[in-house]
Design a protein around this nucleic acid. Structure first.
Length: 491
RNA sequence: GCAGCCGUAGCUCAGAUUGGCCUAGAGCGCCUGACUGUGGAUCAGGAGGUCAUGGGUUCGACCCCCAUCGGCUGUACCA
């Protein structure tokens, strides 16, 4: 018979205990921050109709590339959700009785059928928060503050992260002023505007030189691959270069931007919105070490209509080959006033952001900051003498009653194997009860972590074995107290 | 999608100058034992690979050629 090979689809992973626990902690911690701002949780299904997700291509009766789609039993085209925002728009349109503003948060897995990379998977968790029904910049500002609070709740400090804010209206204004019509008659971006915006978005990765090449004729990368450029005139490129060179504190950026967009009503509106946000951040106590204005931020091209935000990790990371690596944006979003209009006709203003939990987790792992244990078990009761089986279980139930995570070793192996098992899972305490102890109504408790440390200094086997490091034999009546004390020493 | 590099035990890798000495090795890990009821260390044994797959060149291929699949990196796209 042909054997089945155990294997995974690319971009899909098994998540083991250590990462699972870290992710669970992140979810709980961030949810609390969201709730502190008055957000309530909602859950929607993982599968939706493709047109509901806004990814239907009627011409060819197919879903857009990059999403996992399939046919339901009635032949309708359905797909795994690729974000949590489109389902939110559906909910808002479907349950009109829900009062606005609606502040909801949602945890969910999303799927993207694209090439995976560092911190990029085809299946990953997002934790979204959105405010629906409010056009005011107060909403967008709050979203940015929540991003900061969330990052800091995860012990990522100001200076280790940075929220970068821009406004799509400013980008459109700049394009307009540079003589590149941003939108065509049907409201979609012109080709030249698309290529230009994509080029701008790459500044952080390619630097100004690469972006200028992309704004002009095009660029050849190090593997020899050529990317077609926007084919702008030197004066247009010059105008964009001075836009992209704007730096400084929030007020300076706003002032410089104003000079560049002056005359474009769209651009002026965008700068005014930024100024409003700056005021909010300032009185709320969010300095530019946390939230800055960055004209190079573009974000996705399809639905953002106003402020856009991206959060980057500023701690440098080098991979094992010594190459500088960038995790990209870990917490991003923006205003999307047009999303619900697809369903209702009327425009419903909305803004929000989404944290990519798995990418952030991957980053934390790479930084060596993952501190969760390999297992949640606190005590392993070894089983030396099978005739004492009942005693082992009795002890286990007593410990569990006191809230201690306890496992009775149910396998067959000899004691060394059982202790190795505890070592493998990082279990802090092992309990030994053999004939000797049983006779004297005693029990032996081993502090495995302490023993692990001690063993590094011991060379001689006799010393190791006879010394029986980090273990005590006590009366069985004191078992619970001793275990509790030993566990407390850990934390 | 496009381009470059790569593909040898569970993991990390070695396998020299133009193909023969490879009936393919090491370290780590794993299993058994020395150590009477104790993790580490040490020692002795052991399991585990059709050298990604298929074809070709050759007297002879892990090594050369072609194709396919898979991986990494860059690039494109990215809600």
């Amino acid at each position: 018979m042909e054997k089945c090979k155990p294997r995974l689809l690319k971009g899909f992973r098994d998540v083991f205990t250590q990462e699972y626990l870290a992710r669970r902690w992140m979810i709980e911690t961030i949810s609390k921050v969201y709730e502190r701002y008055g957000f309530i949780p909602i859950e929607t299904p993982s599968v939706e109709y493709v047109d509901v997700l806004g990814k239907y291509l009627p011409e060819c009766d197919k879903a857009q590339e990059g999403i996992f789609s399939f046919r339901d039993s009635d032949q309708s085209l359905v797909a795994l959700r690729y974000d949590l925002t489109a389902p939110l728009a559906r909910v808002v349109a479907q349950y009109k009785e829900i009062p606005r503003p609606l502040r909801r948060y949602q945890l969910g897995i999303v799927w993207r059928n694209e090439k995976p990379g560092l911190g990029r998977f085809r299946e990953f968790y997002q934790l979204d928060m959105d405010i629906v029904g409010i056009a005011s910049m107060q909403a967008d500002s709050e979203v940015c503050c929540i991003i900061c609070d969330s990052m800091e709740s995860l012990n990522i400090l100001p200076g280790e992260y940075l929220v970068k804010v821009n406004n799509r209206k400013i980008l459109n204004g700049i394009l307009e002023k540079a003589g590149i019509p941003p939108v065509a008659e049907d409201g979609s971006f012109t080709d030249r505007a698309l290529i230009t915006l994509r080029a701008i978005d790459k500044l952080d990765r390619m630097g100004m030189k690469g972006v200028i090449e992309l704004l002009g004729k095009g660029r050849r990368d190090e593997s020899g691959d050529f990317t077609q450029g926007a084919d702008l005139s030197p004066s247009q490129i010059q105008a964009l270069e001075s836009y992209l060179s704007i730096k400084g504190d929030r007020k300076t950026v706003c002032n410089d931007l104003w000079e560049l967009v002056k005359g474009s009503s769209m651009g002026e509106e965008g700068v005014k919105e930024l100024q409003e946000m700056d005021q909010f951040f300032t009185f709320a106590g969010y300095p530019q070490e946390k939230i800055c204005f960055d004209p190079t931020i573009v974000r996705g091209l399809s639905y953002y209509t106003g402020p856009v935000f991206e959060t980057v990790l500023t701690i440098p990371y080098k991979d094992e080959k010594g190459n500088e690596r960038d995790f990209g944006s870990v917490f991003s979003g923006g205003r999307y006033d047009g999303l619900v209009a697809r369903f209702l006709g009327e425009k419903v203003p909305a803004t929000g952001a989404s944290i990519g939990l798995d990418r952030l987790l991957e980053a934390i792992k790479c930084y060596g900051k993952l501190k969760t244990p390999k297992a949640t078990t606190q005590v392993l009761i070894t089983t030396m003498d099978k005739t004492l089986s009942q005693e082992y279980h009795k002890m286990a139930f007593a410990l569990r009653k006191a809230g201690i995570n306890t496992e009775v070793y149910l396998g067959k192996g000899p004691l060394p194997k059982q202790l190795k098992y505890a070592d493998y899972w990082d279990i802090p305490i092992a309990i030994l009860l053999g004939g000797d102890e049983f006779q004297n109504n005693q029990v032996t408790i081993k502090d495995l972590r302490k023993g692990r440390i001690l063993s590094q200094e011991i060379q001689d086997r006799e010393e190791w074995r006879k010394g029986q490091p980090a273990q005590i034999t006590i009366s069985r009546d004191n078992l619970l107290g001793c275990v509790q004390e030993m566990l407390q020493q850990k934390n």
